[in-house]
Design a protein around this nucleic acid. Structure first.
Lengths: 137, 137
DNA sequence: GTTCGTGCAAATCATTTGCAGCTGT
DNA sequence: ACAGCTGCAAATGATTTGCACGAAC
């Protein structure tokens, strides 16, 4: 699953491997669901300064370690496709649970087909569903 | 296209029809592309107070007049499906243009199919593409 | 006449920046 | 040693809130 390591990715980009970056990376890896910024700041409070968190997340995004997604109100942080597997989210309006899912090849094909009609060539896509999960239906 | 009017929607929800609400509604209707909050605040500066803008947008969302979408970094405001036609966005990474598109029935069917596999029942969905538009390809 | 909505000013929360000192290479 | 990072404190931006007055119903 992991196609890259933090250290090699940082080194490839001529960036230092610091304990703060390792800490934040682990924090995100150990979390199964997307994290809000203020949650990351909170969890890292005793280890990494708020401003370093923001700077690090920006760095991580620039070198393709994490992605910002919008499930819900504000953006959330999660590992990029390179460090996890490509997926999307369904958010339950009742219990708030975020279910991850993989779209079918058919769905992707149909999406490509649609963009072609508009002369658009996508490099990434984001699909978010809202509704009710298995338990709350 | 318009399945409802501002006034009837407000009245149905026992809310007052004020000039501020009419102004903001018109502002959004007259705009073909999604608007950022600070842009709305800016455009309404001489007519509606900043805090009223925020309160009104929240009200509009609660009664289904507008939707917040995430094309780009922060959320943007646009008319809900009830007041326009259901669509999605492709954002060009080069020129920044936001192209709206309608997904095919096939795509919707495939999406429904996918959620069923997860026992999920969606009430709304949002699909955002990033890539390059016709001119920038 | 009530109730609701607005403007204003101030509070709160989110994000960014400058700089001096420490750390990784 | 040197460039790159970090913490801290302060600046900036975004959003929310309390309250008194004016506008809709």
């Amino acid at each position: 699953m992991l196609q890259g390591s933090l250290e090699s990715t940082l080194k490839n980009n001529k960036l230092h491997v610091t304990k703060e970056r390792k800490f934040l990376f682990q924090l995100i890896v150990n979390h199964s669901s997307p994290l809000e910024m203020n949650r990351i700041v909170e969890l890292a409070k005793n280890t990494v300064d708020r401003s370093t968190v923001y700077r690090t997340i920006e760095t991580f995004e620039n070198i393709g370690i994490i992605t910002r997604i919008f499930s819900g109100w504000k953006y959330k942080i999660e590992l990029s496709d390179k460090f996890s597997t490509h997926h999307h989210h369904m958010t339950c309006l009742n219990c708030g649970q975020v279910v991850m899912f993989k779209e079918s090849d058919k769905l992707i094909a149909e999406m490509k087909n649609t963009e072609k009609q508009y002369g658009f060539k996508s490099t990434s896509h984001n699909l978010e569903l809202k509704g009710y999960c298995k338990n709350c239906c």
